[in-house]
Design a protein around this nucleic acid. Sequence first.
DNA 1: TCGGTAAGCTGACGGCATGACAGGACAAGT
DNA 2: ACTTGTCCTGTCATGCCGTCAGCTTACCGA
Lengths: 215, 215
Amino acid sequence: MTGQVRTVDGRVAGRRGQATRQKLLDCLSEMLSSSPYRDVKVIDVARKAGTSPATFYQYFPDVEGAVLEIAEQMATEGGQLTELLAGRSWVGKAGWQTSQELVDGFLEFWRRNDAILRVVDLGAAEGDKRFYKIRMKILNSVNNSLSDAVAELQSKGRVDKDVNPAAVAGSLVAMLAAVASHQKGFQTWGVKQAELKPNLALLVHLGVTGKKPTK
Amino acid sequence: MTGQVRTVDGRVAGRRGQATRQKLLDCLSEMLSSSPYRDVKVIDVARKAGTSPATFYQYFPDVEGAVLEIAEQMATEGGQLTELLAGRSWVGKAGWQTSQELVDGFLEFWRRNDAILRVVDLGAAEGDKRFYKIRMKILNSVNNSLSDAVAELQSKGRVDKDVNPAAVAGSLVAMLAAVASHQKGFQTWGVKQAELKPNLALLVHLGVTGKKPTK
DNA sequence: TCGGTAAGCTGACGGCATGACAGGACAAGT
DNA sequence: ACTTGTCCTGTCATGCCGTCAGCTTACCGA
C-alpha cells in the first residue's frame, strides 16, 4: 500500500524504529497543544520523547515534516466525516436533523484535533500546497456531499438557478471550520456552546435548501 | 493618546528612532507576506531594513511583539468596516445591496491585510489573549452591527424567536473571515472570485433575514 | 553458537539566531 | 567647541539547528 516506512537516510524502519517514530509524533502532537507553533523546537520534542535531537532528524526532515505526517494521519481519519452526510435527506424534518448532526460531528472532529488543524490552516493560508492538499482532503468529503445536495435540489427547481453549489458548500464548510477554531471566542460574545450549535445548523440548512427548517 | 513611543529600555524615541522603528515594522510586514511565520527571523528583518538585530531588539521584545504592533495598527484601520453596515437597511432590494457591499468590503479588507491576519488568527486560535483581543476589535464592529440587525428584525417578528442574534452574526463573520483567508482554495473547487461573492452575499442575507433576497 | 549485517541511537561539532551590553556616532541646543 | 541625550552597532555568551561518524542493539542464516 503506502510502502515501507523509511528513515531520512533511506533505511527501512523496523519495529523499534517505528515505535520511536510514533513516540516522537505523539510528543510533537502534545507540544502543539500546549505551546505556540512558532516556539515548538526539535530539542523539546526529543527531550519529551526521552531521546536525542539527532534521532528526530533520522525520521523527519524538520518539524514541519513531522507535522505533515500527523496531519496526514488525521486527514485519513477525517474520512469518517463523509458518513455524516452519506445518504441523508435535506427535506422536511429529516433535513433539519441532517443539518444538526453535520454541525455536531464537524465541531466534535475539530475540537478533537484542534492543535494540528490550526497548523494545517496556517500552512494552507500561507500557500503551502502540501498543507493545502491535506485541508482539501478533510473538507472535500463534506464539501462534495453538500455541493451535491445543493445541486440536486437545484435540479428539482427548489433552489435558484443562479446559485453556485460549490461556492455555497465551500462557504458553509469554511464557516464550520472557522467557528470550530474559535469556539472560545463566542463565549466572549456571550454565546454558549449549546446555543451555538442550533444556530449554526440553521445557517447550514438555510444555505443548502434556501428555506427555514421544519422542526 | 497612546503616550509616547518608547524603546525597550525606556528611552523616548525621537524622529529618527521612530522612522527606524517604522521601517522595521514595514520590513517585517513584507517578510510575513513572503515567508512562513515560523521562518521569519529577527536577523532577516533587520538586514532587510538595512540595520542590525540589536537595533530591532531596542524597539521590540521579539518578533511576536512587533507583530502585535502591526496588528494593532491594522485593527485601528479596521474600524472603517463599521461603515459598511452603519445605517443600512436589510429590507427589500436595499437589503441585498447591503449584503453585497458587506461581502465586498470585508473580502477586500482581508485581502489587503492577509499576511498579518493569518498570524492574528493563529495567535487567537492558540489562546493568546493579546491576539484574541485584536481579532475581536476588528470583527466586533461588523459583528455588533449584524447582531443588532438580526435582533431588530426579530423584534418585528420577521425572524424566529429562537434565533440567537449574536451566534448567527458571529458565525457569519467567521465565515467571511475564513473564506477570505482561503480564497485561493475555492479556485481548486472550480469556483471563481466573481462567482464567490454573490453566493456569499446570499448566505449572509439568508442568515440575517431568514429569507432570500429580492434582487 | 556464532559471526555478519542492517537498524537504531547519540556525542560532538560547525553554523547561525538570540538577546544583552557597552561604547561610539550623531544631532541639537548652548 | 562642548555637552547632552538619542541612536546604532560590534561583540559576546548562550542555545538551537542539522549533520556525521561511530557505537550499540537486534535479527538472521549457517
